[in-house]
């Protein structure tokens, strides 16, 4: 009905009426067909013409759908081959990756030996790759600034991955059933390895009255990515490790400290 009025107004004047024309165009674009049908088919010819031209899809018009989707699939697969990132195909996966945008999430090589990277490693060893991809973007923004390029998913590859040996305390209940093909972190070698001592070293390091006056052990410096980073690294490590945190003698003062990284940004803010 409105469509008809607009068209009549547009037509009645001898002079052009731009406003009426705009309203007519907008009305048709916004669903002129429905307006026409609601009116019972009796319409001004011009409004009718436009509404019919903009009618909903007719069956034959969508014949190319499968071909178009096939082209889409081929292009997508070609892209993922060239750029091997997990391709989300389900709504759930999309939701999990929402923070990672369309770009590939952080690759495994970008895991760090820092505390948050360490958590990611634990997650990775216990769950499948999708879970890893979902977790990393969430973890990265707060992660330690220094990236040690040594860490693989496997818990035994490099000394700096040592923290994974504390996994049993964190993930014991679910570990055995979801372990990936690789060696589970609950096995022997890790027990005696430095990682456990990394926590202990951090503990010791921070419990000295002035942490920066001491000489941090070399493994700790390496794990932190530099001597200057050791304190922050340790605070984060202990803050996320419930066990040492429980009897942390540093008290509440230090508990707050790790939450605020001193103005350092990884630069990619998690989008990788």
């Amino acid at each position: 009905m409105a469509l008809r009025k607009m068209s009549m107004g547009f037509r009645r004047r001898g002079r052009p009426d731009p406003e009426a024309a705009e309203r007519l165009l907008d009305a048709v674009a916004a669903g002129g067909t429905e307006a026409r049908q609601a009116h019972g088919g009796v319409q001004d010819p011009l409004a009718n013409l436009l509404a019919v031209a903009a009618a909903p899809a007719r069956p034959g018009e969508l014949d190319g759908e499968d071909a178009a989707v096939a082209a889409f699939r081929a292009a997508r697969d070609a892209r993922s081959r060239a750029d091997p990132a997990p391709t989300p195909r389900t709504t759930e996966a999309r939701g999990a990756l929402a923070g990672a945008s369309a770009r590939p999430p952080a690759g495994r090589g970008r895991l760090t030996a820092g505390a948050f990277g360490w958590v990611a490693v634990v997650v990775a060893t216990l769950t499948a790759g999708v879970a890893l991809a979902a977790e990393i973007p969430a973890l990265r923004p707060a992660g330690p600034p220094r990236s040690t390029p040594s860490v693989d998913v496997g818990p035994t590859s490099v000394p700096t991955t040592a923290p994974t040996t504390t996994a049993p305390t964190t993930t014991g209940p679910t570990g055995p059933s979801t372990g990936p093909g690789s060696k589970p972190p609950t096995t022997g070698p890790g027990r005696t390895h430095p990682p456990q001592s990394l926590v202990a070293q951090c503990h010791a390091f921070l419990t000295k009255g002035r942490p920066d006056s001491g000489h941090p052990p070399t493994p700790l410096v390496r794990a932190a990515g530099g001597r200057a980073e050791v304190e922050e690294y340790c605070r984060r490590l202990l803050a996320i490790d419930p066990k040492p945190g429980r009897d942390d003698p540093n008290g509440p003062r230090d508990k707050d400290a790790p939450v605020e990284p001193p103005g350092r940004s990884p630069g990619g803010n998690g989008s990788g």
Partner: peptide, 18 residues
């Protein structure tokens, strides 16, 4: 669709193709 969702691309086709 940009993230690879085939169904979303199909919906785009149906919306725009006519």
């Amino acid at each position: 669709a940009q993230q690879g969702d085939e169904y979303a691309f199909r919906m785009l086709y149906r919306e725009l193709q006519p």
